[in-house]
């Protein structure tokens, strides 16, 4: 173990490593964004009255949950190019160059995420009481207004915890994009360790890098879940009191004696 190399690489990572670090974050965030939006759509299709639309959504979810995302990466990027179906070109977006393989990776990750999120969101929608839908109907709200003002917000209570789980998995799944040459953390670490023969040190740093990213996410999720508990709080409590209630380990509101 070369501690000076380890400390040096940890505190002064190379530009390549930093770029890879942010690439992982960006790829995950973008894929999650599209994944959630597509997931809502597929969840709604799955709950549609038409058998045909239901089946379509079911098939999509089945296929994208069944095939490993690594297979999709190679199929979409390398396979499509060789079969002359579609060749991903580098894209210049406001001065940022998005490499073809990054685009392919984002598309595959989004489509896979959509399949998982569709099931999570479907569960969330089904958890909303019929009475809430009746109430919005009676007030003259349209189907879409009922969905985005009442049903989807209420389903968040059920959706957010597994969604956080999914995002955590997504952050780590980006490592698989190395098979199509995306220069994310795993491939970059491999390259550096191959050049320096410091495999143990470099991969330790890689592990720490993933820990930092997921920690950032966990904190964000904590804040989000706190915000979602707004309805269980008294408006006249101070912010500190609210935090105390929400962040204690036993935060079962029904046992809250105050």
């Amino acid at each position: 173990m070369d501690w000076s190399f380890f400390a040096d690489q940890l505190l002064n990572p190379t530009d390549k490593f930093v770029r890879a670090f942010f690439l992982v974050i960006c790829m995950s965030l973008i894929s999650m964004f599209f994944g959630v939006i597509l997931g809502i759509i597929f969840a709604l299709l799955r709950l549609s009255k038409s058998i045909l639309i239901q089946t379509f959504s079911f098939l999509y979810i089945w296929i994208f949950r069944s095939v490993p995302v690594m297979v999709w990466f190679v199929l979409f990027y390398t396979g499509f190019a060789i079969a002359d179906i579609y060749r991903f070109q580098d894209l210049n977006l406001f001065g940022f160059i998005i490499r073809g393989n990054v685009q392919a990776a984002i598309i595959c990750l989004s489509m896979r995420e959509a399949a998982y999120m569709a099931e999570v969101i479907r569960g969330g929608i089904l958890s909303v009481e019929q009475g809430q839908v009746d109430a919005s109907k009676v007030l003259g709200m349209t189907w879409w207004q009922t969905m985005y003002r009442i049903v989807l917000p209420q389903s968040l209570r059920v959706v957010v915890p597994p969604m956080g789980n999914n995002f955590n998995i997504m952050l780590k799944t980006t490592a698989l994009a190395s098979v199509i040459g995306v220069e994310e953390l795993f491939l970059t670490t491999r390259t550096i360790s191959a050049a320096t023969f410091k495999v143990f040190e470099m991969f330790l740093i890689l592990a720490i890098a993933y820990l930092i990213i997921t920690m950032g996410w966990s904190m964000f999720q904590l804040v989000m879940e706190y915000r979602l508990k707004r309805h269980e709080q008294d408006p006249d409590k101070t912010l500190f009191q609210k935090f105390k209630i929400n962040f204690r380990i036993d935060n079962n509101p029904h046992r809250d004696g105050s």
Binding site: E129, G131, A135, V138, G140, P153, Q154, R230, H231
Partner: peptide, 21 residues
């Protein structure tokens, strides 16, 4: 949907939107 709002309705279980004050 438009006609329905001429009728106000009150339910046994209130059905207030619990995520709003």
């Amino acid at each position: 949907c438009q006609q329905r709002r001429k009728f106000g309705m009150v339910f046994q279980n209130f059905n207030l939107f619990w995520h709003m004050n």
